[in-house]
Design a binder for these strands. Structure first.
Lengths: 136, 136
DNA sequence: GGACGGGTTAAGACCGCGTCTAAATCTGGA
DNA sequence: TCCAGATTTAGACGCGGTCTTAACCCGTCC
C-alpha cells in the first residue's frame, strides 16, 4: 500500500497522518507476520531513522483503538500485532514461538449456542503444536 | 487438598516438599479461578507470612515444568495460572478482564484434520464477550 | 558433637516492556 | 507572520518477572 493510501486510511479514521504515523502504519498494516512492538520500531527506523519509542506505541494504540489492528498476548513475553482484523484462527509453533494464521473457513466451532448467558463478540481457535519437518 | 497429599504430589514429581512449596502448591493447585503470580503471593502470605517473591516464582515455574499447572497470557498485563491442566476452553469477559473456564465437552471444533502439515499437541477455543446482565 | 555440602530461601539488584511527563517542535488557520 | 493545539521526543518511571549473592537448613560423614 502506498503512502497516499495509508494517509487516506488514517484520515478516514480520524487520525491526522503525520509522517511518523504514516511510516508506522505503512509497515504494520502491510506485514503478513505478527510483529512485536519492538520489531515494528526496528523496521520503521530503517525508513524513518529517528522515531521515538513513545510515538511507535502511541500510533500502534491509535490503530488498535480504531480497529485497524489487533493485538494478542499468546505465548512468550510481549504482545504481538496483527493487521488481519477479520476473524481467523492461530497456530502457535512450540519450537519457534512463531504465530501463524489459520483461515476462518478451515475450522468450524459447534456448541457456541449452548453458552446462553454470554454475548459473544468474537472467538478464535488457538492450536499449539509443531510443524512437521517433512512437510516444511 | 490437605498438606500431606500436596507433599505426596510434590514428591511424586521429584520436588522436595519444603514448607514454602507446600503452602504455594496448596493454594495454587486448589483455586478455581485464574490467579496472577501476585495474587498467589498475596494469598500464600496469609498463611505463610514471609515468602519471598523469588520463591513464589520459582515454585510456580517448577509446577509449570512438571505439568501440574498451566499458564496463559490472554488479555491484560501479566500471565495467569490455571490448575486445570485437562483440556478446556476459555471465555474472556471484556468488561472485567476475568477469564472463565468452559468445559471441553460443550464445544466441538471441526476441521482440524485439514491441517496436514502440523502435529497438534493441544488446542482451545478462546471466546471474548460480555456476560449478560440479566443472567448473572 | 562438630564440620561439611547440596539444596532451598530471602532480599534486593537488575532487566525488558510499556506508559507517562515535560519540553520542544510542527502544523494549519487567522 | 503569529498563535494555539496537536504531535513528537528523550528520558524518567512503574510493573512483572528473573538473576545474584549470601544466609540458612538439614542430612551425612568424620
Amino acid at each position: 500500500m502506498d503512502e497516499w493510501k495509508i494517509a487516506e486510511l488514517l484520515r478516514a479514521n480520524g487520525i491526522s497522518p503525520s509522517a511518523q504515523r504514516v511510516a508506522i502504519a505503512r509497515y504494520v498494516l502491510g506485514v503478513d507476520t505478527h510483529p512485536t512492538a519492538d520489531q515494528v520500531m526496528t523496521e520503521v527506523r530503517k525508513r524513518f531513522p529517528i522515531v521515538s519509542r513513545a510515538t511507535v506505541y502511541n500510533t500502534l494504540n491509535l490503530l488498535l483503538n480504531k480497529g485497524l489492528l489487533a493485538h494478542y498476548n499468546m505465548g512468550g513475553p510481549g504482545g504481538v500485532f496483527d493487521p488481519n482484523v477479520r476473524g481467523h484462527h492461530h497456530f502457535l509453533d512450540e519450537e519457534t514461538g512463531q504465530l501463524l494464521d489459520i483461515s476462518w473457513d478451515s475450522l468450524k466451532v459447534a456448541g457456541l449456542e449452548s453458552l446462553t448467558d454470554v454475548e459473544i463478540s468474537g472467538y478464535m481457535v488457538v492450536i499449539r503444536g509443531r510443524r512437521k519437518k517433512d512437510a516444511r
